[in-house]
Design a binder for these strands. Structure first.
Length: 576
RNA sequence: GGGCCUGUAGCUCAAUGGUUAGAGCAGAGCGCUCAUAACGCUUUGGUUGGGGGUUCGAGUCCCUCCGGGCCUACCA
């Protein structure tokens, strides 16, 4: 038994996430957590909401409520949606928690003590009407290169030219539209990532088994131009973690908060502490996951995230961890994902284009989405959601291959032998062959899951389901029952055990259907099968079961056409 | 501009430099009748984006061109 620490990139508090966000971190992390638990490992699966930063403040302002209140509400919404998708977090924390305040300030203090923080005086755009400093992309104006009138302060979307906010003609606040802007002096703390360039590079170089996506992004940042740059870790905002050196004030930094990307990864640790607090446990319980001097030396730590988060997890956060000089657990494996597109374009939050987590659950149960999203996880390149592909996969793979197999076996068994597993005789060639095939496939499935090769695992699981139909067709109990009832008993007994096995191994992908199968089979165990062949005899003759309802309904062509239209969204471009 | 990823059957995707490039879906044919008209078997379908090169051998490595995507450090 191993100990596995799993974190999913923490979703930003600003609004409900779309299916692309879901499949980029939380869902695959859940798949892995569920599998590792089934294997009998001790798992700590952590996620949280990422609550700080300018967009949160603006969203609260638009909603007309205080930002703390806004975040508390949205946290509850995201938590409920996570539960709706059966994300099995051990704790779903908040980056605004007291624990994270404490830890973030602690890390900053340690980094300062170790000479890894420097102060930088700079000038930034301040909007008098908004009463706030504006990040570059929140300043709009006319592009000096192409004349596009809605260019942003960091880049012109029209001609892709990199810009500085001062380059813009007729610059104005993207928040209020006010042109009353000025360059105002301010001071910020920078994390000296550059001091860790070599050490990080040596570390990344040893990770030959990480996805190319992860290492290539990290190397690009390490080697591009003058190499890894120092990064500002404070902001002039109201909402956030006040800048402190441990528990001490930080002279000159009054009124400032830490940058969201400094405190967000620390929340992985803080959320584990929140978990201990919520369960009335002492600190030693979360220390044993995070402190290698306090029991975490045998922990394997795996992170899941979209590609946009890779630099922070391969460079900034490791600098924070290593720079602290304390024995915190460093990540062992980073699984990163490309993006999911929607029907020929991008998902768009502002344009409401695509399917969002709340909408998805309103129209279909979570297993349907989990199955499609995971079996199409954008592991090697961006992938694309289309309603046709989605409904084809659900109808064929879930309803026909798996659902119908369960249904045909149970209906036949019920009508001939009642709601108990029949006896029958010895296995014949068909059973031997099927058991052997299943055994091989389960081995391959397990190996894919160990390696976090999600699409391959899904494909293999599908083959395992399909093997049941092949077996049943060859064994043909509906013929045997007429001449050799005992033979029919053997076949149904074997098939019911196959169903039971499916319930056991499918749960990482489709937890609800798996639970329904296991409940109806009154399955004696939920653990991962030690031997697939032995497993085929787990339900003994005379074992009673309850016929399950139809596991998956089909999606009609009419629904596809309705939904396709409903979720097409407007034409508004997405600033995200 | 720079970097990385990507382009394989109508669609979604596989193929440590090594037989004749494979699966699933869709299409076609046959079979079966237990089942959500479900299942099984067989089968059609390819100049691996174009061109050049290295090699005994290239989907795979190199160069170049074309298309798609992401990142490019003050969104997160």
């Amino acid at each position: 038994m191993a100990r596995i620490l799993i974190t999913s990139a923490i979703p930003y508090i600003n609004g409900i996430k779309h299916l692309g966000n879901l499949v980029g971190s939380q869902l695959p992390a859940d798949l892995y957590a569920r599998y590792m638990r089934l294997q009998g490992n001790e798992v700590m699966f952590i996620c949280a909401t990422d609550e700080h930063g300018t967009p949160a403040e603006l969203a609260a302002m638009n909603a007309g409520i205080p930002v703390a209140e806004y975040c508390a509400e949205m946290h509850q919404v995201q938590k409920r949606l996570g539960e709706g998708f059966r994300l099995s977090f051990d704790h779903f924390g908040r980056s605004s928690s007291g624990r994270n305040h404490q830890l973030t300030q602690h890390f900053a203090g340690r980094l300062a003590d170790n000479g890894l923080i420097r102060e930088v005086a700079e000038k930034q755009v301040y909007s008098k009407e908004d009463g706030r400093f504006l990040p570059d992309r929140y300043i709009e104006g006319t592009c000096p290169a192409c004349g596009y009138e809605r260019a942003r302060g960091d880049q012109c979307e029209n001609c892709t030219k990199q810009l500085d906010p001062t380059d813009l003609i007729d610059a104005r606040s993207a928040v209020s539209g006010s042109a009353d802007l000025e360059l105002r002096a301010t001071k910020h703390l920078y994390l000296k990532q550059s001091a860790f360039r070599e050490r990080l590079e040596d570390w990344i170089e040893t990770k030959f088994d990480w996805p190319v996506l992860t290492t290539s992004i990290a190397k690009k940042w390490l080697r591009d131009g003058d190499g890894l740059q120092d990064r500002g870790i404070t902001r002039d905002l109201e909402w956030g973690i006040p800048v402190k050196k441990g528990v001490e004030d930080w002279p000159g930094m009054e009124g400032k908060v830490f940058y969201v990307w400094f405190d967000a990864p620390i929340e992985y640790i803080a959320a584990t502490a929140e978990w201990a607090d919520a369960n009335g446990m002492p600190d030693s319980e979360w220390h044993r996951w995070w402190r290698t001097d306090l029991g975490a030396d045998d922990v394997r730590y795996v992170q899941f995230m979209g590609k946009d988060n890779v630099p922070f997890h391969t460079l900034s956060f490791p600098t924070t961890i290593l720079g602290s000089g304390e024995p915190w657990k460093l990540v062992d494996y980073i699984k990163s994902f490309n993006f999911l597109n929607y029907d020929g374009g991008q998902f768009s939050t502002s344009g409401q284009r695509g399917v969002f987590m709340d909408q998805a659950l309103e129209i279909l149960p979570p297993d349907y989405w989990r199955w499609w999203l995971l079996s199409h996880a954008p592991e090697n390149s961006d992938s694309e959601f289309t309603w046709e592909n989605f409904s084809d996969c659900v109808n064929k793979e879930l309803a026909d291959v798996l659902g119908n197999f369960v249904n045909r076996v149970v209906k036949f068994g019920m009508s001939k032998f009642g709601a108990t597993v029949p006896g029958g005789g010895e296995w014949q060639e068909a059973e031997q062959f099927c058991a052997q095939t299943i055994s091989q496939l389960v081995g391959a499935y397990s190996a894919h899951l160990d390696n976090i090769e999600i699409r391959k695992a899904a494909r293999t699981l599908r083959a395992i389901w399909s093997t049941g139909n092949e077996y049943l067709q060859a064994a043909a109990p509906w013929s045997a029952i007429k001449t050799d009832p005992e033979r029919a008993e053997t076949i149904i007994s074997f098939s019911l055990n196959l169903i039971n096995l499916y319930g056991r191994i499918s749960s990482p992908f489709i937890p609800d259907a798996s639970a329904a199968i296991l409940a109806s089979m009154r399955s004696p165990s939920r653990a991962w099968p030690a031997s697939a062949a032995e497993e085929m005899k787990a339900l003994e003759p005379g074992h009673a079961y309850d016929p399950p309802d139809v596991l998956f309904r089909k999606i009609s062509k009419e629904e596809v056409s309705i939904w396709k239209n409903e979720f097409a969204g407007g034409s508004k471009p997405d600033p995200d």
